[in-house]
């Protein structure tokens, strides 16, 4: 289904849900409308319409260089400091334009967390890593912090493994544990959205499955958008998948967005089918 058709379908979903009360309303949390981005003269994204709903994990797949990461970074405004970077079109968070001023961007990052390809714990204790975001919110007393830190670590499935060594350096944890710590650090400030840029590509299969399991566990509370090179991962964890491809002038375009099961079973666009079946890419 084309990106536009999917929007219409989501809207009709809502009508159906109101009428029958059978399916909960898909509440669109993140949306881009006609998003164009440029790095200087190079157009990186062209007219991207992406919507990610609460309670659903949205995966973005596509070959290298198709703009997946640019799109993710655009949502979190992480490219704003790149020289020559500019955008047009809209980025909406819960229906309202995402802020662009510096103070607004700080507030935005509190609502939109990010998990990167390689775990990036801060060189401090496990406790301080998780408490970092909370301290920025001026919650300073250790007693105030203990409870939300524990909760975040539990949600990230790490509490049992680290509860006796919270004061030890986070850098001593394994790769999989470090990535879950980063997840706990994001979850601690209770974001509405977590963007994940190939979050398991540096992890072993068991650690990967743990992170995927966690995603399924908290997807009802946090809207997740995940960029992944691993199509099996997209098929395993996501509810909705978007396929991106380089279009004219190498600008990334969103070719198709659909329910994951449909996209991997009956892709509507020939280019999607060719990519997921390994005929190119």
């Amino acid at each position: 289904m084309s990106a536009e058709a999917f929007h219409i379908e989501v809207a009709s979903d809502m009508v159906a849900a109101v009428a029958s009360d059978a399916e909960p309303l898909p509440e669109i949390v993140v949306e881009t409308r006609g998003l164009d981005t440029w790095y200087g003269d190079f157009q990186a994204l062209r007219k991207v319409n992406l919507s990610a709903a609460k309670g659903r994990i949205t995966a973005i797949i596509g070959p290298s260089g198709c703009g997946k990461s640019t799109l993710l970074r655009a949502i979190n405004r992480m490219n704003d400091l790149v020289p020559g970077y500019r955008t047009s079109g809209e980025i909406l968070l819960e229906g309202a334009p995402a802020p662009t001023d510096p103070a607004g961007v700080i507030a935005l990052r509190r609502r939109v967390g990010m998990l990167f390809q390689r775990p990036n714990p801060f060189p401090m204790s496990i406790f301080d890593n998780v408490a970092y975001g909370l301290r920025l919110e001026r919650r300073r007393s250790r007693r105030d912090l203990a409870e939300p830190v524990e909760r975040a670590l539990q949600r990230a499935g790490l509490w049992e493994e680290v509860k006796d060594r919270l004061e030890r350096s986070a850098l001593g944890l394994s790769g999989g544990q470090q990535q879950r710590l980063c997840l706990a650090r994001s979850l601690a400030v209770e974001p509405q959205v977590i963007l994940m840029d190939e979050p398991t590509s540096s992890l072993d299969p068991i650690a990967t499955l743990r992170v995927e399991e966690l995603m399924r566990e908290f997807r009802d509370e946090v809207t997740i958008i995940i960029v992944t090179h691993n199509m099996q991962q997209a098929a395993r964890v996501s509810d909705v998948t978007a396929f991106m491809l380089m279009g004219e002038g190498r600008a990334g375009e969103l070719v198709e967005i659909n329910r994951t099961r449909e996209l991997f079973n009956r892709p509507q666009d020939r280019r999607t089918e060719d990519y997921i079946t390994g005929r190119f890419g």
């Binding site: 199509m231 099996q232 098929a235 991997f264 079973n265 009956r266 892709p267 089918e273 997921i276 079946t277």
Partner: peptide, 9 residues
């Protein structure tokens, strides 16, 4: 081979 779409069908 983890076939999908047409390949799986």
């Amino acid at each position: 081979q983890a076939p999908v779409a047409r390949d799986l069908r």
